[in-house]
Design a protein around this nucleic acid. Structure first.
Length: 672
DNA sequence: TCTTACCCAGTTTTT
DNA sequence: CTGGGTAAGA
């Protein structure tokens, strides 16, 4: 075969022809990354070194050189991150940037699978099930094989799910996963494999995919259909993968497939910030990038622009405690700034009082609420603070933790939508049917057997298994779906009908139904923005709505809110002032991680991610008395902070105002 | 046989 | 606060 090398016409542009003065706007390493043209490149970018900036400018530069937005694929960790980057690129260049293909691996895969459904054995209307649904399905399979006759402890649905998911994401056999991580369950290997197979069959039969299927089925689609692979890869003239340290083996394979035609692939990430090993990510993955993509150009961004010297020193010290050493030489020209504070509070209540008062003080000094963030390990660690913030009327948004669309009542309503879109979605049918009094798992299963074989699946009242007890209810279901089918194209009307039907069940099922009904009303309002039911389901599955997004929607828009976030969800973001709360041993590091040095290292990286979010001020707080905690180590501060010398972190003590007028103020002035 | 009510236990992080 | 397990009720 002969090769003819096409010259890159977009490259012809002289530097002076660009509208943006990239040399002025970027440092040398960033510039190198932005102007990298052909072939694979890996950008190893420490925290705060302008990683996002580099990606944004690279998008802008490519488009300015005449590359069509459709030819660029920007894969990020969340959809929010992608839209934010494209928004910024649009601001510095023009709106063409917003038409770049961007999103998560899952989202892009979902689009490909819908487009090429014919080749996958799935219909185009397949639905995506979330983790909860997957676990429910697994539980169903588990109950069918009757593990009881085996008296020995059998893994529960959570464990089974993570075994299966691990095996997919890391592309290892179940046996290998078991012997490496769950040796106590090796004896059940046979049954576990049976459940896994049943689970796989079930998903195919019911036209549903779980999150992992989106990735693995895309891989199979592209590997087994070279024509489609070529077509897809040819569309991706430039592929960029952000947060590469948090990709797993399967995603690395997909990256290779997506970029297999042009081979213009750029990975961007920081091995010191790898915090998603529970999802199969391996921080060594990023270091293997040059092995997977030959002739990779390596670019390092090491100059930190974000944080003060004091914050950087502390962060480096935190990271230095890891057994795995990183050859990081982060440096900065920024001022030293104030020492980070280690705030010891008597109890949870005092911790929250300190936060609300400090936040209000800072706001008075002119710092916007949205320039501050409170970070924590677990979604629930902020509950007490949330109450305190509400009392003081401080508006906030919360990222991470329980999602709006994961709440039971919203899932109930969505189950009806899923049935309407995909009448073979058993899990959704189960939810719909089991709302009815007198119908449990068995009856629901029998009804579904009938539904599967019926050409009028919504006429459940016609099923022969009906007993008189719930025939009327089934007629109501049939009427509901008949009505829904008539207004199928109007998302909002569909939701109104479902909520109308669901209202009485909601009252019966939940004590706090007034709040939940209000949620559903808001949900109806939001639903107007979706173009179709299937689009809505896809969006909600791949990008669940944050709980507080609902409330903030209605709240007064005069002040941008304070940010509360899990550390995991704070990845890639930055604020002027950051508070890391609940820095207790057993929380950071999590009690589940203390046994395993690798997991402990990841907890260190997690704290490193948290502390490098701060630009100017950083506080770690912990209560001495942890209410509700029964274990001793819950009352000790995080082991990662305890041994840090006072030159790097300043201890703070909270005092009550009673000693005349020198209280909070005194504490504050002592540090400034 | 199937459903439901009740009690006890355990609770990470996300697409 | 939710899930799983058990025991009693339909």
């Amino acid at each position: 075969m002969k090769k003819f090398v096409l010259s890159n016409d977009y490259e012809q542009k002289g530097e002076e022809e660009y509208r943006l003065d990239y040399r002025q706007l970027l440092n040398k390493a960033q510039y190198e990354a932005v102007f990298h043209t052909a072939g694979p490149a890996l950008v190893v970018a420490g925290a705060g070194t302008g990683k996002t900036r580099t990606l944004v400018y690279r998008v802008a530069r490519l488009i300015e050189s005449g590359v069509s937005p459709k030819e660029i694929l920007l894969l990020t960790f969340t959809r929010k991150a992608a839209s934010e980057m494209l928004r910024r690129a649009s601001l510095i260049l023009d709106e063409r940037c917003s038409r770049v293909k961007g999103g998560t691996f899952h989202f892009y895969c979902s689009q490909l699978l819908h487009r090429y459904a014919d080749y996958t054995g799935y219909p185009p209307n397949f639905t995506i099930i979330d983790t909860t649904d997957s676990m429910d399905t697994i539980q169903l399979m588990r109950s069918q094989i009757d593990a009881q006759k085996n008296k020995k402890r059998f893994p529960d649905k959570r464990t089974l799910y993570s075994i299966f998911s691990s095996s997919v994401n890391r592309q290892l056999t179940i046996e290998k996963i078991l012997s490496e991580e769950y040796p106590q369950f090796l004896q059940h290997l046979e049954n576990i494999l049976i459940i896994n197979n049943k689970y796989k069959q079930y998903k195919r039969l019911n036209h549903v995919m779980d999150f992992d299927d989106l990735l693995v089925n895309t891989k199979i689609l592209l590997q087994e259909n070279s024509d489609i692979c070529e077509k897809v890869a040819a569309e991706n003239r430039f592929v960029m993968v952000d947060e590469y340290q948090d990709t797993n083996y399967l995603q690395a394979e997909l990256t290779e497939l997506f970029s297999s035609f042009h081979n213009n692939v750029m990975g961007v990430g920081d091995d010191a910030q790898s915090i998603y090993s529970f999802r199969g990510a391996d921080h060594k993955n990023i270091m293997q990038f040059p092995d997977r993509f030959r002739n990779t150009k390596l670019i390092r961004l090491e100059k930190n622009y974000r944080s003060t010297g004091a914050i950087l020193d502390l962060s480096n010290r935190v990271l230095g405690q890891a057994t795995e050493k990183f050859d990081k030489k982060l440096f900065t020209d920024n001022e030293r700034g104030e020492l980070p504070g280690l705030v010891k509070a008597a109890n949870l209540n005092d911790q929250s009082r300190f936060l609300t008062q400090m936040i209000l003080n800072l706001r008075e000094q002119g710092l916007e609420l949205s320039e501050m963030a409170v970070l924590f390990r677990n979604g629930r660690d902020s509950f007490d603070l949330e109450v305190a913030l509400n009392k003081k009327n401080i508006p906030f948004v919360k990222y991470g933790g329980q999602k709006f669309t994961e709440a039971a009542h919203v899932k109930d309503v969505l189950a009806h939508v899923r049935v309407l879109v995909n009448p073979l979605d058993t899990i959704a049918w189960n939810r719909v049917l089991m709302l009815i009094e007198g119908i449990g798992p068995k009856t629901a299963h029998d009804l579904f057997e009938w539904i599967r074989n019926s050409d009028q699946p919504f006429r459940v009242d016609q099923a022969n298994v009906t007993s008189t007890r719930y025939i009327e209810q089934l007629q109501a279901v049939a009427r509901l779906f008949a009505g829904l089918n008539r207004v199928k194209d109007d998302v909002k009307q569909v939701l109104e009908l479902i909520v109308g039907y669901y209202r009485s069940f909601c009252k019966k099922r939940f004590d706090d139904y007034p709040k939940r009904l209000k949620d559903l009303e808001t949900f109806i309002d939001i639903s107007g923005s979706y173009s179709s039911l299937s689009v809505m389901l896809e969006e909600i599955a791949l990008d669940p709505i944050e709980s507080t997004a609902i409330e903030t929607e209605n709240a007064v828009k005069d002040e941008s809110p304070l940010v509360l976030s899990t550390i995991h969800s704070a990845k890639g973001m930055e604020w002027n002032t950051v508070f890391v709360i609940q820095c207790l041993d057993g929380i950071i590091p999590s009690g589940y991680s203390v046994e395993d040095p690798d997991k402990l290292d990841e907890e260190i990286r997690l704290l490193y991610v948290a502390s490098t979010r701060a630009k100017e001020q950083l506080f770690f707080t912990y209560p001495v008395l942890h209410q509700g905690g029964y274990r001793d180590y819950f009352t000790n501060p995080s082991r990662f902070l305890e041994e840090i010398p006072d030159e790097l972190i300043e201890p703070w003590i909270l005092m009550e105002e009673s000693n005349t007028d020198e209280s909070q103020k005194k504490i504050q002035s002592s540090s400034s």
